[in-house]
């Protein structure tokens, strides 16, 4: 399997290198939204004496910089790609090879992150200096962030595949995935840090999987939660990863029987 991954990785890097500018533009697009919210929250905080809840201007800067990094590391576009491939008949060849199609997606995701991480890092350092971001991160937070962001990426990837697999029935899943993404916009910690959401919204964020994808690893990296709280939140991540893993197994085995191989 290592040899297969190495070969896929090489091919995907070669393909990605054909569209370097596009990769950078997508990365910038992913950063723009957190930066807009950062600017908005900084303005609101300043108008209210520099503090909202436990966050001052420098905390907001640190949170949204961490969030931008987490978005880049965990976001997966599988559902959109999957729908396109099913609709255009390009998924069928993958089903007919002795390798589960999910492995191609893993590699595509890894390559996307590898090719954008360095320019993103430069932008985030620039933002940190500009907004004088204050990180409360300790070595323990760094140690916890690594598994937390891996769990978040797994959760994002698996949930994306569960949604994508619905294309076996509907052929088009764009509306469903867009609805999912919009829900994530509210509940994942993008519009505001989870701690600043009104009570019911905060409860929903942590009762549903959304908060565990972005808000939790971003707060752990910023050092915004204690180590014990971080461990509890990571327990939630593990729970949702298991739920979506089991769901994917079930949905895949049923869905693949429904596949009508349109256009192929």
């Amino acid at each position: 399997m290592i040899r297969i991954y190495r070969a896929l990785l090489v091919a995907q890097i070669q393909a990605a290198s054909q569209y370097r500018v596009q990769s950078i533009l997508w990365m910038l697009f992913a950063v723009i939204r957190p930066v807009i919210f950062l600017a908005a929250w900084v303005a609101v905080a300043r108008s209210q004496g520099g503090q909202i809840g436990a966050y001052d201007v420098r905390d907001f800067a640190a949170y949204y910089i961490c969030l931008s990094l987490v978005i880049n590391l965990v976001t997966s576009w599988n559902a959109y790609e999957f729908e396109f491939e099913v609709r255009m008949g390009r998924f069928s060849p993958k089903l007919l090879r002795p390798l589960h199609p999910i492995h191609y997606s893993v590699v595509e995701n890894v390559v996307w992150k590898l090719t954008t991480i360095i320019p993103l890092g430069i932008i985030l350092v620039f933002l940190a200096l500009t907004f004088d971001a204050r990180f409360r991160t300790t070595p323990a937070h760094i140690l916890l962030f690594v598994p937390s962001v891996v769990l978040a990426a797994a959760l994002s990837f698996l949930s994306s595949w569960v949604l994508a697999t619905l294309a076996f029935w509907t052929t088009r899943v764009h509306a469903i995935t867009t609805l999912w993404d919009r829900a994530g916009f509210i509940f994942a910690g993008q519009i505001a840090p989870l701690a600043l959401l009104p009570g019911p919204l905060q409860a929903i964020s942590l009762a549903l999987p959304f908060g565990y994808v972005l808000g939790v690893p971003a707060e752990i990296l910023r050092g915004g939660v204690s180590v014990s709280t971080a461990l509890v939140l990571m327990g939630g991540q593990v729970f949702w990863v298991v739920v979506f893993y089991v769901a994917l197994q079930r949905v895949w085995s049923v869905g693949v029987r429904q596949y009508s191989a349109v256009g192929a």
Binding site: R3, I4, R6, A7, L8, V10, A11, Q14, A15, Q18, Y19, G89, R90, S92, P93, R97, A264
Partner: peptide
Amino acid sequence: RTQLVWDIPAADSFRVLQE
């Protein structure tokens, strides 16, 4: 229908298929 990766030479796709 195509099963090759569109953006790379076929020789590279052959290597992937080999693995």
